[in-house]
């Protein structure tokens, strides 16, 4: 069931296209409307193009085009400074800045986004993701799960208006997953909107307000989030 978009939207676009070569177009059409302080889920099979869409929205995948890409009502491109300054992403696989520690990564983000130090929030994130004592350790020396947690801490700490999370649950243990769901909900209420890709049905039922489906190169939606995790898969087969 499609829902009518609310008036207050932070990001929207139509007819997105993304390709790797002239004969390999991953995303052919479709659009999204991201409402302020909402959590949108993006569902799709492996290889559907979810990560490509996230990369395109981040301006990293340049072979993409958007029609009517609007950020807070103003037309823009993914590379525009206004969007860039208000957007951050946590990628599924991320080994960036591996010779730095989380502390240094946080300092870089503070410098890049002119963020004010919020030690209480930082403390809360580090405690929640059980990264105590690991903030001075090189990221390359952390396990996959710890590395993922560090990426999530830095992503949430940016407090951007638009946060893109690509497979945020990967590698996380049970308690951290619970904390992640809780943080996603509180983040959307306090700071900004989130677009989340995941292969875990529970992620959508626990956090999202709406779901979009990316299938065969087409984005459809938004759909209501089913109450049961088992029903999420049925949205894919519609």
């Amino acid at each position: 069931m499609e829902m009518s978009p609310k008036q207050e939207k932070i990001l929207s676009f139509d007819n997105v296209r993304a390709w790797y070569s002239s004969d390999h177009t991953v995303i052919k059409c479709g659009g999204m409307i991201v409402q302020r302080n909402s959590v949108l889920g993006l569902v799709g099979k492996n290889g559907a193009g979810k990560t490509t869409l996230v990369n395109s929205l981040c301006g990293i995948h340049r072979d993409a085009s958007f029609e009517n890409l609007l950020y807070e009502g103003s037309e823009c491109t993914p590379q525009d400074l206004q969007l860039k300054n208000n957007r951050y992403a946590c990628f599924a696989k991320d080994e960036s800045f591996r010779y730095w520690s989380l502390g240094r990564l946080v300092a870089l983000l503070e410098a890049s986004f002119s963020l004010k130090r919020d030690e209480e929030y930082l403390e809360c994130l580090i405690d929640g993701f059980a990264l105590n004592g690991l903030d001075t350790v090189r990221l390359s020396e952390l396990s996959s799960g710890q590395r993922k947690k560090a990426a999530l801490v830095s992503a949430f700490y940016t407090r951007r208006k638009l946060l893109l999370l690509d497979e945020p649950v990967d590698f996380l243990d049970f308690s951290s997953t619970e904390f992640l769901y809780e943080t996603i909900r509180s983040y959307s209420a306090s700071y900004g909107s989130i677009i989340m890709c995941s292969h875990i049905a529970e992620s959508f039922t626990r956090c999202c307000s709406q779901i979009y489906v990316l299938e065969e190169g087409t984005i459809t939606g938004p759909y209501d989030v089913p109450e049961r995790a088992e029903d999420v898969v049925q949205i894919l087969s519609r």
């Binding site: 520690s101 502390g103 240094r104 300092a107 870089l108 503070e110 903030d135």
Partner: peptide, 8 residues
């Protein structure tokens, strides 16, 4: 542990 200046 969290330098408040631009990291090295």
């Amino acid at each position: 542990a969290f330098p408040k200046r631009l990291p090295s």
